[in-house]
Simulated assay, not measured.
Amino acid sequence: MKTVIRLGEACAAGRFHAVLQYMVLQDEAEALAGWIEPGCDLPEDCTSGLIYDSQSSKLIDKKRPTDPAQVFDLAACCWVMPAGAQWERVRRERDRLMSATDWRVTRAMEIGQALAPEWVAYRQALRDVPLQPDPFAIDWPAAPADESTEAPTEAQH
């Protein structure tokens, strides 16, 4: 038995190629036009696609992504998170942190006082998070030190 493959897109350097299809043929069978013999067997338990390394003539299982938002980077031969998807995550986390402080704004308004300056600065720093240049290296602001880190419950009124 021998494996034949049909190649698709290649990385910029031309080393790694996406494998569009593969077939296992009898040894005496000839490969079809446009198909090549990689000279190696299929990786065991290959479940999510193959990459052909033309330099080493090996088939590589690209495995499954660890996150559904990841895409396969053919040049690096690995799964990566696109910057746009990472920015979405950053904004969701920023929104979660902002929401966790909303009660402070409401409480200050209810009692007719200004929000403490350190909380105003913290909330502004959270609003500014998407202005940072790299979604993979966010410098998250630290919440001000305070004895009450959660919204009070009805029993605490």
Rank of each mutant, 00 (worst) to 15 (best):
L7T: 05
E9Q: 14
C11Q: 03
C11E: 05
A12F: 08
G14A: 11
F16A: 04
H17R: 11
A18N: 12
Q21M: 11
M23I: 01
L25Q: 06
Q26S: 00
Q26Y: 01
E30Y: 03
A33V: 00
G34E: 08
G34R: 10
W35A: 06
I36E: 12
P38V: 05
G39E: 05
D41I: 00
P43E: 00
S48H: 15
G49S: 02
I51M: 13
D53Q: 02
I60G: 00
K62F: 01
K63P: 01
R64E: 12
R64I: 03
P65Y: 04
T66K: 13
T66Q: 14
D67N: 15
P68M: 06
P68A: 11
A69R: 14
V71E: 14
V71M: 04
A76Q: 15
C77K: 00
V80C: 09
V80K: 12
A85M: 10
Q86M: 15
Q86C: 11
W87I: 00
E88L: 11
R89C: 03
R92K: 14
E93K: 04
R94I: 07
R94G: 00
R94Q: 01
D95V: 04
L97Q: 14
M98R: 09
D102S: 12
V105W: 05
A108Q: 03
A108C: 06
G112V: 07
Q113K: 15
A116Q: 12
E118M: 02
E118R: 12
Y122M: 09
R123K: 07
A125I: 06
L126I: 11
L126W: 01
D128S: 12
V129N: 05
P130W: 09
Q132P: 09
